[in-house]
Nucleic acid binder design. Structure first.
Lengths: 130, 130
DNA sequence: ATGTATGGATTACAAATGTAGTATTTTATT
DNA sequence: AATAAAATACTACATTTGTAATCCATACAT
């Protein structure tokens, strides 16, 4: 356990996002997707894919003549990992302080708030009955 | 406005945290603080201070014989900035998705939950009456 | 069969980061 | 004042990241 997953850089995250959307995908598939959102040259994307594969964050299927790439970790796992280190770094490890700050943010809709509140309710419910 | 503050690296954040705790401080003050928490050599800390000064994230008072360093931005500002780019990167920009995930985390106490809920309440109250 | 385009492998190179070391200038001590 | 100790300044060097280009092999079109 505690399979520490390698760190994913900013640019690499973009690539991962594409693969989490749909996978497996060929390099050119990924390249097209990214050409819409970024102005990276194809070779750049290719490099990022290669690096991710080296780091074992994505896998490569070499059975066909054209390789396909696919994530080895779920988006959720990666988010969790990143988030954990982020919180530790920026908020001295206390989750609450961060939540407090973010919840002040204005981009939350009434709907969002409702949903968040229900999650909290559920949580404290579970805690109480445990 | 929109004074974009420079990016602060992982190691630099440690230094900033020390300065936000107390400032101004001399280099050796910062070094001592960090020697407790990390195993960085004094020169390493010094380099970090210099880089932060170069980047204009901290200021240097050179009036005394021994320089003192102090933050040029509040911790809050820096957290906000980091957090914004973090969310964008990891959560595709949607704040809520992140909050949802974090609130699932188990490290929140009953007390924390209460506080968070009251923040939400306040928020939706404000929204409604606006 | 031959050129051409496409994919894969290898290489490049600057900036940022982690992690200091060396050299020089001040300051403090005797 | 001379020397030691401490600060400051400057330099170093490997790794990671952003951003590709070049070179080689192969598949496709003619």
């Amino acid at each position: 356990m505690s399979n520490k997953l390698p760190s994913i850089s900013d640019a690499e995250w973009e690539v991962m996002n594409v693969l989490w959307e749909k996978s497996p995908q060929t390099a050119s598939g990924v390249i097209s997707s990214l050409q819409e959102q970024t102005d990276w040259k194809p070779k750049t994307v290719r490099t990022l894919l290669d690096r991710l594969a080296q780091k074992k964050v994505i896998g490569v299927n070499k059975d066909q003549k054209v390789y396909t790439f696919f994530p080895l970790y779920s988006r959720d796992e990666c988010q969790q990992a990143e988030a954990k280190s982020f919180i530790k770094r920026i908020y001295g490890g206390t989750l609450k302080s961060m939540l407090v700050q973010f919840m002040q943010e204005d981009s939350l809709s009434e709907e969002d708030i409702k949903e968040l509140r229900s999650i909290l309710d559920e949580k404290s419910e579970k805690k109480r009955t445990k």
